[in-house]
């Protein structure tokens, strides 16, 4: 009996350094595979994988807000749109180099996210969902509206040019954009992981778990919640800018609430509160609708819905939850 009690924590919680080492090894393997990939698959698949990474970044932004801070959002398509349009307008009218549009888009979204986060402070759960959903519905209409037309191009949208690989690298532009997006993704994912591990991150999570307790611990709940909204919008905005560059085109109707719902689905399927899970979410959002269409053209929506329900049955806490479950089962068996 004594022995047993001693064993359990050792199995359930391998010491932190071992876990960290395992995580670093896994990341290194994943990155290596990701770098090799664009040289062995077709261009169209490279393009799709690039988009999946773009979605993964956007979903990570949503995850910071929902998964780690406990705030709902069905409005992230709006931030995605702001990021995309910032990039497109800067490239189209300001002739700014594409890589400089990312920080600009991020900053624009961070500010708008922070500002939207202020009134959102008073709302929770379903009410916050509706408020953010309103933002998502309003965004395409705003983009189409006549006062903004000189910049946004109205319903027509803006077409931009695809960048070539720099320094005479022997890459076609699909491969280059893939590598570029991958680099941005790695930086942003590492930054998110560090943020969550930091003091600030612990405060963000504490607010999710119990905001009253967090307040009594001296955490400025309002400030952190709005800031998280800003950071979350930053990620999604950068993703939007990347998306604009990759697709070479922005138009109001690419950023309807359907995109918000897609990001939300990716969040839940990937795993709420899991950074690595968002990668799976990005792949799911991009590929599953196509798979559904391949299975049945007429009933694509129904097939997609059925897949979604089955996935939720099999992994109610997302891909990350499933991996955790399998991991703990293996750990128990080997002990």
């Amino acid at each position: 009996m004594q022995q047993n009690v001693k064993d359990v924590p050792a199995v359930a919680m391998p010491d932190a350094t071992a876990m960290k080492r395992r995580r670093i090894i896994l990341s290194a393997v994943a990155i290596t595979v990701a770098i090799i990939l664009p040289f062995v698959v077709k261009n169209f698949l490279i393009f799709q994988l690039t988009l999946a990474m773009v979605y993964a970044i956007a979903i990570l932004g949503l995850n910071l807000l929902t998964g780690f801070n406990g705030q709902f959002s069905l409005g992230h398509s709006a931030f995605f749109a702001i990021g995309a349009y910032t990039a497109a307008i800067l490239m189209d009218q300001g002739e700014v180099a594409y890589y400089w549009t990312l920080p600009a888009a991020g900053a624009a979204c961070m500010i708008s996210g922070f500002l939207f986060g202020l009134p959102a402070l008073r709302l929770e759960g379903i009410y916050l969902a509706l408020a953010t959903f309103s933002l998502a519905v309003a965004m395409p209409q705003l983009l189409k509206s006549s006062p903004l037309e000189p910049w946004t191009g109205g319903v027509q949208g803006i077409t931009i040019l695809k960048p070539d690989a720099p320094f005479g690298l022997p890459l076609n532009s699909d491969q280059w954009l893939y590598i570029f997006t991958l680099a941005v993704l790695i930086v942003l994912f590492a930054a998110a992981a560090n943020l969550i591990d930091s003091r600030t991150g612990r405060a963000i999570v504490a607010i999710r778990d119990n905001s009253t307790a967090a307040r009594s611990m001296g955490i400025n709940v309002s400030l952190y919640k709005s800031l998280t909204f800003g950071v979350s919008a930053f990620y999604t905005g950068v993703a939007g800018a990347l998306g604009a560059i990759v697709i070479q085109f922005v138009a109001p109707d690419s950023f309807t609430f359907v995109l918000s719902i897609g990001l939300f689905v990716g969040l839940v399927i990937g795993g709420v509160g899991s950074i690595a899970g968002t990668l799976f979410g990005g792949l799911f959002v991009l590929f599953v609708p196509n798979i559904a269409e391949a299975i049945s053209k007429g009933l694509a929506g129904a097939v997609y819905g059925v897949i979604l329900i089955l996935v939720i049955y099999v992994m109610p806490s997302g891909a990350a939850g499933l991996v955790r479950l399998i991991g703990s089962k293996i750990a128990r068996r080997t002990s």
């Binding site: 719902i261 819905g305 059925v306 979604l308 939720i312 109610p316």
Partner: peptide
């Protein structure tokens, strides 16, 4: 799905939405 989280429920609502819309069409 009684014990699943609210977020999972919302995803299932979205799935139902897609299914019903597509079948009606």
């Amino acid at each position: 799905l009684r014990h699943a989280s609210l977020l999972s429920h919302i995803v299932v609502f979205i799935a139902l939405f897609a299914i019903i819309n597509s079948v009606a069409g």
